[in-house]
């Protein structure tokens, strides 16, 4: 699996209130949610993001509430994958089980090396992210086996309980 897009860089502890603020939780239409994606962290984000883009973030991305509106809003804004030093578990799980986007753990070298706006190519089979702007490549952490199967199936509902183990 290969993905290509531009990087939008954020810091540590980006919480779900920043990804999609509480008042929008009333909204069920994902396209409407997407109009407010990342509003709490960068109100200009939705103007900048293009289909296929990546978020590159520091530690504990998606901490806070269990709102699946967070990965949903990012997905419908065009974001295909989040590359972060680490993830909060509910956000990680929602991204995968909902089939919304790919959460990929990266190392500090990639986080520091990738600049805001750089063009990236993520190659999951090779376990590499390549910064096409700088020409540098970085290893990403391997995706756990079950997570990979759920992602390839397109979300949790594509598998019956017996097929999970």
């Amino acid at each position: 699996m290969k993905l290509r897009g531009f990087a939008h860089k954020f810091g540590d502890n980006i919480d779900t209130d920043e990804i999609i603020p509480g008042p929008y939780l009333k909204e069920q239409d994902p396209r409407k949610l997407a109009e407010h994606a990342m509003e709490g962290a960068d109100p200009e984000f939705v103007k900048k993001v293009r289909p296929g883009d990546f978020i590159v973030a520091g530690r504990n991305f998606g901490c806070g509430s269990s709102r699946e509106h967070a990965p949903l809003a990012l997905r419908y804004s065009g974001v295909k994958a989040v590359l972060a030093l680490s993830f909060a578990r509910i956000f990680y799980r929602n991204s995968v089980d909902g089939g919304h986007l790919l959460p990929v753990e990266i190392g500090i070298d990639a986080y520091e090396g990738i600049g805001d706006g750089d063009e990236l190519e993520l190659d999951l089979d090779e376990g590499l992210v390549k910064d096409l702007t700088t020409g540098k490549g970085y290893r990403v952490k391997p995706i756990p086996e079950l997570v990979r199967r759920i992602i390839e199936a397109g979300g949790l509902f594509s598998l019956k309980p017996e097929e999970l183990l």
Binding site: S66, R67, E68, I90, D97, G98, L156
Partner: peptide, 9 residues
């Protein structure tokens, strides 16, 4: 705590 896809499942 979980998201709504997991809870639906």
């Amino acid at each position: 705590g979980m998201g709504h896809t997991d809870v639906a499942y």
